[in-house]
């Protein structure tokens, strides 16, 4: 700050009236970090993706991606894993959270137990699934013992193994979010509906559920981000060169195994665009819903 001349003071006052004062300097460190470590690399990657290593025009990488079936199909593979996993996790957490929204004994314990899978981490989940669901694992032993199947079911090193690992790591997260949205809905609304003679299904369908849907949309988006970036489990329990070759594997492979950073960046950009498209669709749909007060907190 220079010596406060008359104009300087006046300018500062005018700026302060529009909300610009020295408090905003507090934003600077965080903004610099995010701009330098997120925005700059992102833009750098974007321009790098337009400079193909093998030449062939600005869009060569993108053209190559959509021409090569082995690369193009990774989008479908990723969506085919991410969307069912996210949808399933959200759908399963709604009835559970609905049952657990009130107060009851042992609620904190049950919540903690349900949250524990977050700590398992990808590798333990993958290792555990390989052992547990493997041909000689406990799961197949039980099925064989009960006479439900004649030979071991193959659930690892294919689509199902990856889906299971996404459910184990993603469900607790979806459940926590859904539960917190549900407890934010004013319970007196439901009591009012009950007074008017609504049964439990009507109360859920016409009172609680409409208020919950916007929250579910956000929960779906966050679960989808988690499931979409599936990487380690697709390699460890999946079939990384075939059925579960997801787009992040393709990007990693291009960038760090073929050392074609340009192609790797292009695939990463495509991955971001696809993911943001899905999220934009969901959020656009969410914008058409009732989003007023739910009477509770938040």
């Amino acid at each position: 700050m220079t010596a406060p001349s008359v104009e300087g003071v006046a300018l500062r006052h005018r700026l302060a009236e529009r909300g610009l004062d020295r408090t905003l300097l507090l934003l600077l460190p965080a903004a610099v970090f995010v701009a330098g470590l997120f925005l700059y690399p992102f833009l750098y990657g974007l321009q790098l993706s337009f400079q193909p290593q093998d030449g062939g025009g600005v869009f060569a990488n993108y053209a190559e991606f959509f021409r090569d079936g082995y690369l193009r199909d990774t989008i479908a593979t990723t969506l085919w894993l991410g969307v069912p996993a996210a949808l399933g996790n959200v759908a399963a957490s709604v009835p559970l959270a609905y049952r657990m929204r009130g107060r009851f004994r042992g609620k904190r314990l049950l919540t903690t137990v349900l949250v524990v899978p977050i700590t398992l981490g990808t590798v333990l989940t993958a290792e555990g699934l390989l052992t547990f669901l493997g041909p000689t694992g406990w799961f197949n032993r039980v099925l064989l013992g009960l006479g439900l199947v004649d030979e071991p079911v193959r659930l690892t090193h294919n689509y199902w193994g990856v889906l299971f690992s996404l459910i184990i790591t993603g469900f607790p997260f979806a459940f926590l979010l859904t539960l917190s949205y549900l407890t934010g809905i004013d319970p007196s609304l439901e009591s009012a509906a009950a007074t008017l003679g609504a049964g439990w299904w009507q109360r859920f369908r016409f009172v609680t559920f409409p208020l919950l849907v916007p929250g579910l949309a956000i929960t779906f988006c966050l679960s989808f981000v988690l499931a979409f970036s599936v990487f380690p489990s697709a390699i460890l329990v999946g079939e990384p060169s075939g059925g579960t070759r997801v787009i992040s594997i393709a990007a990693y492979h291009a960038a760090f195994e073929e050392y074609d950073y340009s192609m790797g960046s292009a695939i990463a950009m495509i991955m971001g665009v696809v993911e943001l498209l899905v999220i934009a669709l969901v959020l656009g749909w969410r914008a058409t819903l009732y989003r007023g007060s739910t009477g509770g907190k938040g």
Partner: peptide, 19 residues
């Protein structure tokens, strides 16, 4: 700007960032 890094999967910005 502050929300984007959370909404975008780590691999997407991780590869350009690593580069």
């Amino acid at each position: 700007l502050f929300l984007l890094p959370i909404m975008i999967p780590p691999v997407t910005y991780g590869i350009p960032l690593a580069t």
